[in-house]
């Protein structure tokens, strides 16, 4: 037990070291890889302070999906990358420095001078868990106490996807995302893309199911499902769908639509928008979470696939 402070000390130093390395890396690609490692290490930090839900999200979204998105962006921007000796202008650097200093000072004030007692809603969050038939307070916050935020989060995801789609040329609107896949010769990738999805799909569903009582959740589960889909698309085993497909768009909306329908039904059966009736909260929560997980998985997969750059026929 006495070695734990040493472990956390080293972990903290490693996080700061990787953050520094990411900032000073000359090549965009190297910086992105540093950022992915940084996300994974942050996941360990969150797990260390007993926030396993946040740790899973950080590893899946912060390290995983954001990492893949940035890798693809870096690969696309490589031709336009400035030479390593080019530096941004003095004014730009001074402004960045000032803003970073403000953020650092703000964080330092919060950490060094905490209010006493520290504000906490933990007791209030745990109090109503039995009424919701849930055991994990994080899930209760996301799906019950702050359900509106969670719903709007899905709308934000959709807006982000529309933003990505808008980057494609007009003539290809509704077509297939990304460039035509290269002829697959990497048998190792094909092998992984055939072997891993069955395991990953079960694990993604498990993450959603177990989130009622244990760390996990729709976002983490959806991310794992999306990763399996992306893997199959990268290996060329599955072609990405045309972004004009009606079934696809319905899938993209299903999470939000279910949320809104259940939300308005709350007026009739429980006396308020997004209220759950005392008799069967768990059934309604699952009814919302299952389409939401699918929506998250499809949206993340399409975000990584990118804008339409080919016609449906090509």
């Amino acid at each position: 037990m006495t070695l734990l402070p040493l472990y956390y000390g080293l972990l903290a130093l490693l996080v700061i070291g990787v953050a520094w390395w990411t900032l000073v890396a000359r090549e965009t690609m190297a910086a992105v890889i540093g950022f992915i490692a940084y996300g994974m290490l942050l996941g360990l930090v969150w797990a260390g302070i007993a926030s396993v839900d946040v740790a899973l999200t950080e590893a899946a979204i912060g390290g995983g999906v954001t990492g893949v998105l940035l890798l693809r962006a870096a690969a696309r921007l490589r031709p336009t990358e400035p030479a390593p000796h080019e530096k941004p202008g003095l004014v730009f650097r001074v402004l960045v420095g000032i803003f970073c200093a403000i953020v650092t000072i703000g964080l330092a004030v919060v950490v060094l001078f905490p209010t006493d007692p520290a504000p906490s809603l933990a007791i209030a969050a745990a109090e109503h868990l039995p009424a919701l038939e849930l055991g994990n307070p994080v899930t209760a916050v996301l799906i019950a106490y702050r359900a509106l935020d969670t719903m709007l989060e899905k709308v934000v995801l959709l807006l982000a996807l529309i933003g990505v789609w808008s980057l494609g040329p007009d003539r290809n609107w509704g077509g297939l995302p990304g460039r035509a896949p290269a002829v697959v010769t990497d048998s190792a990738l094909t092998f992984l893309a055939k072997l891993l999805p069955p395991i990953g799909i079960v694990f993604g569903v498990y993450l959603l199911w177990t989130s009622a009582d244990n760390p996990g959740g729709a976002f983490q589960g959806g991310t794992v499902l999306a990763a399996m889909w992306i893997l199959a698309m990268m290996a060329g085993l599955r072609a990405p769908p045309a972004i004009g497909s009606r079934a696809l768009r319905l899938l993209l909306l299903s999470g939000t639509i279910t949320f809104i329908v259940v939300g308005f039904a709350g007026f009739l059966i429980a006396g308020g928008f997004l209220s759950y009736p005392a008799a069967f909260p768990k059934a309604l929560i699952l009814l919302i979470e299952i389409p939401m997980t699918l929506t998250i998985a499809v949206t993340l997969g399409l975000l990584v696939s990118g804008p339409a750059e080919r016609d449906k026929t090509s």
Partner: peptide
Amino acid sequence: QLAGATVSQLLAR
């Protein structure tokens, strides 16, 4: 094992 073996193959190629 699976991840390590696959990724090292891809990197080597």
